[in-house]
Structures are given as C-alpha cells and as structure tokens.
Computed example of a mutant assay.
Amino acid sequence: MEKDKLALFLLLALTLIQGVLGIGVNYGKLANDLPQPAQVAKFLSESTVINRVRLFDANPEILQAFAHTGIDITITVPSDEIPHLAKLNPAQQWVSTNVQRFIPATNIIRILVGNEVLATANKLLISNLVPAMQALHTALVAAPLDHRIKVSTPHSLGILSSSSPPSSGKFRQGYDTHVIKPLLNFLKATNAPFMVNPYPFYDCSTDTVDYALFRPNTGVLDDYTKLQYTNMWDAQLDAVYSAMEALGFEDVEIVIAETGWPSMGDLAQVSVDSQSAAEYNANLVRHVHSGIGTPLMPNRTFETYIFGLFNENLKPGPTCERNFGLFRPNMTPVYDIGILRNTAVADDHPKTLSLIMVVMSLNLAVKIFDMGLI
C-alpha cells in the first residue's frame, strides 16, 4: 500500500513539474530577419521548455514545421476574414484548408477568431464575431474535430468600462449584452476559454512600477471586498472576473492570450530594460503557475502566453513594440529566465525559472500527499 502511495506521489510530482515548466509564447513574424519556421520548431522543441505556441495566422509552413514536435499550437483567423466566415460553407472550407490537413501531426488545440476585435470599433467585424465563432465550431463538429479544438477570441482590457477597484469590473455598455454575453454563452456551451491580453507595463508609472513587476510593495486595498492586492496582474484579472461574474459567467475559464514586458524602449518610458523584462516574465510565470491564484480566484492556475518569442524589427509604433521578444532572431536569449533546457545560471538572474518551478511543484505534491488526497 505504501509503495502504491509512493508511486502515486512520484507520478503526481512528475506531472506537476511537466505542467508547470511549460511556457506559452506568441510567435509573431513582423520582421525581416527571423529564422525559418523549421529552425524555430526544432529550437523550441529540443532546446527550450516552451510547449505552447500562439500564431497570429494559420501559416501552413509554420504548421508543417511544428508537426511531430508535441507543441500545442493555437492558430488565428485574421480579423478581415471574420465576415466571410460567419457562414457555414466558408467556415468548413477554412477548417479543411487550415486545420484538417495538418492534424494529427501538428497538435492544433485552438482557433482564435481575430485579435482584440472589439477594440477596432469596426461594426462589421464586431457584429460577425460570434456568428463566425459559431460557424467554425459547427465546422469542427462536422469534421469531426470539436472534442480537441476550441474556438475563442482574445480581448484587450479596453473591453472594461470599470476596473478599479477590481470588484467594480464591468464590461463596456452596449458590448456587454449585445456581444460579450452571447460570446460567453458560446464559450460556456463549448467549454472554451475567455481570452484576455493584460499588460501591466502599459498601465504602470514611476509610482506603481514595483506593483506592476511583482516586487515587494505596500499593495492596494479593494475597499468593497477588503481584499489586498500586491500586484497589478491580479488586479487586472480580477477586474475581468468581476465583469464576467456580473453577467453570470464566473465559471468560464480565463486564459491569458498575451502579456509581456519590453527589454528596450524610449526614454520617457518606465523601467524599459532587460532586467525589468526578465523580472516581470519570471515573476509572472512563477505566479500564474503557483496555484495561489488571485484574491477573487484563489487556488487557480492560468494558461499564459508571453509576448513574444522574437524581437520583431518591422512592428510599427514606439521602440518598445519592437523589443518584447524573449529571443533575438539568432535564437539567443535577450535575457535568461530559465527557458533554455540545461541552461546555466545567469549572472543577472541568480535562480533559473526551471529550478524554481521544480521546487514549487515538489512542494505542492508534498502538500497534496500530506493532506491524504493520494
């Protein structure tokens, strides 16, 4: 009996370690100096602990490159295709062309319809968003692929009309009942996640940078719930949760489609350097996988995708937009957070993320074992 328990403990510990060490990244291609997809897929699968990749399209060369790697792939329907895919026949053709011919060799787990569509204020795109999601889901069911591939869409935090304090979180009036509620109904019915793109970087100032980077700080009290917030990430997620709860969908899973911190920027920006970027991303991954959750969502982990995989030299906008990458185009790390397998300890980051995650996983397994749950 004791041997059986020990075996179960070791299996649990291994499962937790494998799950926690997995990191999701956004693989953007707005650059003219990136390695070939085959090189990228080989590098990620053999040299890193990254096991989930989100694409901003359904590039066939990339999908082919990730075949037999075991990496989970999320693909995206470009926003301008949304109106066309609101009808079943085009949706079925899209699934056949961009999904069916690549599986099971490529592990496609999710289709995202557009990106931050509500932020575009484009009425044609917004009105067709949920119908396109429904048509794609119906096409997957008919394939039949519905059991393994989910359909969702990512949102910026601009969908909220109120977010401070977190308990006051509400969706923007008009969108709340006409778009977001039907969308949440669809997600709940298909067991798909509500996906958001929180970026503490864009909301921080010199006064709140410690709060944004998960550093020790005095925290912020939500006067309504009396809950204390020690980082901006928790506050942003709980504002989204409060908005979902107000519509009656607090049980829909939340997935972070993208978040990150740039390693270089313009002079006026706060803490834009490789040390801050490493600190944010390492603390982020440790926090979301710790099982601590947030004040309003305790004891939860969150599937999270860091933006981005590479620095992208053709992205428009301020300098920071071209410097969110974990890696340079030559596949060397911009900074070290323990993503590389068997990586040496970096001078500016004395604990690798992987070691921290292993210790946390073992500690969690011990707690579960001690509680008599195995």
Results as ranks from 00 to 15, higher is better:
L118N: 02
T76W: 02
K87T: 07
I109P: 06
I82S: 13
A132G: 06
E116I: 14
I50M: 03
V95L: 01
E46W: 02
L63W: 03
F43D: 00
L129F: 05
I75K: 13
D72V: 02
V53F: 01
N115M: 11
F43Y: 10
N59G: 01
L118T: 06
A67L: 05
I111D: 11
N107H: 15
L125A: 07
T97A: 13
L44R: 04
V113F: 02
P90E: 02
V77Y: 00
I111A: 07
N98M: 13
L129K: 15
G70R: 14
S47F: 04
T76G: 11
K42N: 09
P90D: 09
G70N: 08
P60L: 03
G70I: 12
A91Y: 14
A132W: 12
A119F: 12
I75P: 15
T48G: 01
N89H: 08
F43S: 02
I111T: 14
V117K: 15
V95Q: 08
A58S: 13
E81R: 05
P83D: 05
Q92L: 12
Q64K: 06
A121H: 14
L129D: 04
I126A: 15
A121E: 12
L129C: 13
F43E: 01
Q93I: 03
L118Q: 09
T76Q: 08
R54P: 05
L63T: 01
A58C: 05
S47Q: 10
I108H: 07
K42C: 00
E61K: 09
D80I: 06
H84E: 14
V53L: 08
A105H: 14
S127Y: 14
L44I: 13
P104N: 08
S47L: 04
D57R: 04
L85M: 11
A65K: 09
L44P: 11
I73H: 06
T106H: 07
V77G: 05
I62V: 15
A105D: 13
I50C: 08
N59F: 08
N59M: 00
I50E: 01
S96D: 14
P78Q: 02
V95E: 11
L55E: 01
L124V: 14
N98V: 01
N122Q: 12
Q64D: 02
P90Y: 14
P78M: 07
S45M: 15
G70L: 11
E46G: 09
I82C: 04
T74N: 10
I73A: 05
A86F: 08
R110E: 01
A132F: 09
S47W: 00
E61M: 03
R54S: 07
T106M: 07
H68P: 05
H68L: 02
D57M: 03
